[in-house]
Design a protein around this nucleic acid. Sequence first.
DNA 1: CGCAGGATGGGCT
DNA 2: GCCCATCCTGCGG
Length: 208
Amino acid sequence: MVVWKHGLNILMKLKCGFYLRENTVEIARDLLGKLIVVPDPQGNRVSGMIVETEAYLGIRDRAAHSYGGRRTARNEVTYGTGGQAYVFFVYGMYYQLNIVTGPSDHPHVVLIRAVEPVDGIEIMRERRGPMKDRNLTSGPGKLCIALAIDRGFNGENLRGKHIWLEDHRSFTDDEIAVGKRIGIDYAGEDAEKPWRFWVIGTEFISRK
DNA sequence: CGCAGGATGGGCT
DNA sequence: GCCCATCCTGCGG
């Protein structure tokens, strides 16, 4: 699919309705193949195709920051309308990018766990330092470094000018795997829920 | 290749 | 004071 650096790419931004659905598991699956675009300060396209996601289902999900209706300054944007970025800081070093879904007061999100570099790979290499390309964006913390996403992106509209999602390609169900989410062993039986999705066969996912 | 351990700081009890 | 939706390094095989 041809994308011009300026101009027509705006026509490919995902519509509001994509994010406003209440079935967050379905949105997590549908996000595979979409492009996350974050222009650098000079306006160069830096982008990656989503290859791994996880759904977090809000108040009833022990793994979610909003479990039990918990509402704090940190997770406030997850209670907002779908189509915003929720970016949080963890392990003293890393940021994680999430997509807020559904209507307001429905604090569901999709964590972006891995992307495949598409545009601006040289810029990503500079930001990440010397390493194999397959390691540039193969994890939720890594991709935030490669795309220069930090706390300033929290609450950003995903159809704005600082960050947006575009259609890029699609995957059929037999190209997609489903499994349990990673790094949430504290969540009891919710740790077993099959709410992680990834593209089969890509070297850019966070784990084999 | 796999695995153990450390880095590092904000959020919440 | 403990936990955390991670990553990297160094070591052994």
